[in-house]
């Protein structure tokens, strides 16, 4: 029971107290990319959550094997990148051959969804925060859900961002970044207090 509560609190931590996307900027490029395609934002988020969860699970076992050897951090990261590249190919293969309907919808931005700084931030968080296997799975799921929360918030504000009163030079990307900055400030205040 204690482990489950610990896992849940870890998940909530990366979703709200330290929202990885808005508090730290992980996956911000992907978020902006998704904002231009609001119809499939949730589907993109679901694929990303699957990627971060699998990444969390794989990293847990990867760490158990690699920690037996004395490897410097850059090489450690390189080895995990190789694992991540293989996972990416497996993901693309499964989506293309098994979940074809989803693949057609998300294929345009699939690489950005599966290889981005949010997915790659999961091992770092697990290295510092995870206490056990369940915890690392929860952190993986939480990382993906933090993206979905950010995507929903950004989509919700999209209508206000298209306001004609916004000065010409601020239309598009700048006003979107300002909105993300305000959301980031909210999450920062949430984390501090």
């Amino acid at each position: 029971m204690k482990m489950v509560i610990q896992a849940l609190s870890s998940m909530l931590f990366v979703m709200f107290a330290e929202n990885l996307v808005l508090s730290h900027g992980h996956g911000a490029t992907e978020l902006i990319f998704v904002a231009h395609r609001p119809k499939i934002a949730l589907l993109d988020g679901a694929v990303l959550t699957a990627a971060t969860t699998v990444c969390g699970i794989v990293y847990w076992f990867f760490e158990r094997v690699v920690s037996r050897f004395e490897i410097i951090w850059p090489v450690h990261a390189l080895l995990f990148m190789i694992v991540l590249a293989v996972l990416y190919l497996i993901f693309v293969g499964i989506l293309r051959n098994v979940l074809t309907g989803i693949y057609i919808k998300v294929s345009r931005g699939l690489t950005v969804t599966l290889i981005n700084s949010l997915v790659f931030s999961v091992p770092f968080i697990i290295a510092f925060e995870a206490h056990d296997f369940l915890d690392s799975v929860a952190l993986g799921v939480g990382a993906g859900l933090s993206f979905i929360i950010a995507a929903v918030l950004l989509s919700a504000g999209q209508r206000a961002l298209n306001n004609p009163d916004v000065p010409e030079v601020f239309k598009g990307l700048p006003v979107q970044l300002i909105y993300m900055g305000i959301l980031s400030m909210v999450f920062y205040a949430f984390a501090v207090h």
Binding site: G25, L173, Q176, G181
Partner: peptide, 12 residues
Amino acid sequence: PFAGFFTLAFLI
């Protein structure tokens, strides 16, 4: 980080 978003927005 939030100031980073603002600075980048104004630069763009």
